[in-house]
Design a binder for these strands. Sequence first.
DNA 1: TATATTTGCTACATCGTTATAGCAAATATA
DNA 2: TATATTTGCTATAACGATGTAGCAAATATA
Lengths: 343, 343
Amino acid sequence: MSTKKKITIKDIANVLGLSTSAISKALNDDSRISEKTKKAVRQVAENLNYQPNHLASALRSGKSRLVGVIIPRNNSNFFSSVLENIEEVLNEKGYNIIITQSNESFEKECKCIESLLFTQVDGIIASMANETTDLSYYEKIKAKGIPLVLFDRGEMALEVDYVGIDDYETSFKIVDHLLAQGCTRIAHMGGYDDTRVYGNRIKGYKDALKERGMPIDERIISKNKLRIDDGRKVMEALLELPNRPDAVYAASDFAALGALQILNERGVKVPEEIALVGFSNEPFTSFLSPAISTVNQNSAQIGKLAAEAFLNRVDAPVEKGEVKKIIIETELLVRASSDKKIR
Amino acid sequence: MSTKKKITIKDIANVLGLSTSAISKALNDDSRISEKTKKAVRQVAENLNYQPNHLASALRSGKSRLVGVIIPRNNSNFFSSVLENIEEVLNEKGYNIIITQSNESFEKECKCIESLLFTQVDGIIASMANETTDLSYYEKIKAKGIPLVLFDRGEMALEVDYVGIDDYETSFKIVDHLLAQGCTRIAHMGGYDDTRVYGNRIKGYKDALKERGMPIDERIISKNKLRIDDGRKVMEALLELPNRPDAVYAASDFAALGALQILNERGVKVPEEIALVGFSNEPFTSFLSPAISTVNQNSAQIGKLAAEAFLNRVDAPVEKGEVKKIIIETELLVRASSDKKIR
DNA sequence: TATATTTGCTACATCGTTATAGCAAATATA
DNA sequence: TATATTTGCTATAACGATGTAGCAAATATA
């Protein structure tokens, strides 16, 4: 009943009168073992219900077949979709993933790295916490020669592979869309611009306006944490202005939600009086009325590409192999909140 | 520069002219090593930037200090909150967690179990996929003597520790609340009743009505996957009925959302004409207008208790130690969708 | 003072695999 | 037929830690 006794390759070896090396090779499909023996070994392994001891092989081979993933927080659809795809790609190659959450805290992020290294992961795929500016822990990973791939929240300063979207370019798409809707005064709810992502969105927004010959008014540009409440407060302030904006581009769906709540509460017509666009395609944006236009970041693709970047690094020589920065296309999802039905 | 060379206890031993056993013992704070030596060892370890090899100690000690967690899907707030708390409790005790997702598929769930066992986890904390009825894989975990804790989606059939809410009792709370609001015809959007969770909610709903002397009408009880679209379809059908319900209790927030969309689209006043209550406290329920009343499942507590249940199993003799079924209180969050302001 | 106990360490085996070297038999090549 | 190569396996030593046995010196007990 109780399978207390653990079956090892030694047991298989005893049954077949072979050496443990032969068993190990047979199970790993080594060319120097005859087909006949392999078949017999596999048969016996199954009969005995043999389960390879991962720890032993990892210790001996120096490969744990474990990949650590660090995400800021697992409450957004974006990250859970990225994770799902990383897992799918890596599982196929025999890797398991260990997921850790930094909770947007630099300190916790360091702990995550520590414990992943402790667990002897073969690589780390990470999205940095917003508050992280000290890159020494990431340098430590690199120094150990462990493949490191960043996604979404990266740092160009770090010489590592990166997969993300073009935030700058996406701001152009949004601004152009709003201009095409006839908007002439587009406000921006931005994140703190010391994070690359939000900085680029702000920069793209300003450059787009400039290139289209529109004025930039700092009074309708805000920077904060982009939570629902931030969106509410900023929207309230915007409505107080002598000349209201006729569009709001929020760099986060949560801020956009806050803005929409205020607009609905005040009876401001969306999109007729003020058009609204968010960012990230959180599922709830489509639940609301009006549904909020937003940006699909192709999270599935980001996950797949990040996993593949890791796999390439494992094979390819790590040293001096020109890091890859992969930027993928975003898709502007135009919904009711910014669709004036103009043709 | 490149720390290619790995530092082991052997290196520390060489520096100090001691044996490796002495180093191991010193680092593990063995009483048979003098304070002076311990201090010296710790000092050298730090100087050399020694990182213990987890695989080696896991192999030798037979304890990996890894705990596997299986969740159906990581897109709900509930699971991500449970995870966060499991991690917090276990990290503190020196455990790392490996998160796997079954995607609600029995087949994938089996793979998750396989790969967790392969990774030699010290225990598994799981919430079962809805379609799982064959418990043989879970029996396999038990047979191996590895602590197993189920949460939320469990099976009484399995003799293992369990942490969850009282779905049956919660249905009483909801029905009573709706009755108190003056509702007399309460519809139920339920899940498939072969899953314990949904079965209990349905049972609680019916028994509550019975106990309060209300009739049960099968025509206003539906069973499906409780996605947004299911909620929409069922709500449409309910509105077609000759005698509409004046309240809807949906066993999922997503179904409740679908229902609300239809009600809003048709101009049915919520809660005046039809009151609505969901289940799970997904964040979006509070974003909507009207905000949907729902049930807070105390996910944080579930996570903490599940982790603690595992820790207890590790210490306590596993055999015949009466399994613990922990049921925690839920909280009904009354919001606009069911609050008729009656006193 | 003789014996028992404690202290502080060393030597060695071990966890379950895999990597390396090597060897006999079978097969290919000259 | 003699030599080279391939095939199919064995023996042995790791990987890096830890647990057990044991031993000398220091300390306690009789």
